[in-house]
Amino acid sequence: MSFQFTGIHHVQLAAPEGCENTARQFFGELLGWSEVPKPKNLQKRGGVWFQCGAQQVHIGVQQDFIPAKKAHPAFLVEDLDALCRHLDQKNVFIINDEPLPGAKRFYLKDPFGNRLEFLEWE
């Protein structure tokens, strides 16, 4: 093939209408991600975008929203233990799962019920 994939630009998570302020509090304030301005022509759809390392996470409004309880993005973290302590101090419920060889990881639910994984390779 003459083409190749070079990575992931963004992951989109669905959320209910009116989610923007809650998303800003969770992804922006709690996780510390920077908000990325949406292009003007897409602003009418609602939602909010964030920068997470080299990738973006787009929170998009879905009319018939149902949280993703199994499908999920996994975010690479440097010093996962520090993130875990930070979230614990903010009373965020962390879900431990089966070990993944060579990694430390945990899950949590975003404010809309979507499953998110955070991991650090050892």
Rank of each mutant, 00 (worst) to 15 (best):
L42I: 10
D97G: 06
K109T: 03
G32V: 08
F27W: 15
L13S: 12
P73M: 15
I8D: 00
C84L: 03
C19F: 09
A23H: 08
R85A: 14
G46C: 04
L116P: 02
L108R: 06
E122S: 14
F112V: 04
I59G: 04
A23R: 05
G32R: 07
Q56Y: 04
L83V: 12
K40G: 02
G32L: 06
L31T: 09
E98P: 01
K90S: 12
G18L: 04
F27C: 12
Q51V: 06
L42D: 02
N91W: 00
T6R: 11
V77P: 00
R85G: 00
Q56V: 00
Q25Y: 05
Q89T: 06
K109I: 01
P101L: 04
A74Y: 02
R45S: 10
P73G: 13
K70N: 11
G18P: 03
L116D: 03
N21F: 09
E35H: 08
F65G: 07
C84I: 02
P111D: 13
I8K: 05
G53Q: 07
D88E: 12
P67L: 11
D97N: 07
H72L: 11
E117P: 13
F106N: 08
Q56G: 04
H58Q: 12
F65N: 08
D110G: 10
V61P: 07
L119M: 15
P99T: 10
K109M: 03
R105M: 13
A14Q: 10
E35T: 15
V48N: 04
E122Y: 13
N21M: 12
H86I: 06
P73W: 14
I8V: 15
Q43M: 13
G60T: 12
L83A: 11
F50D: 12
L108Q: 08
G47I: 00
A71T: 08
Q55K: 05
E78D: 14
C52V: 13
L31W: 07
P73F: 15
S34P: 01
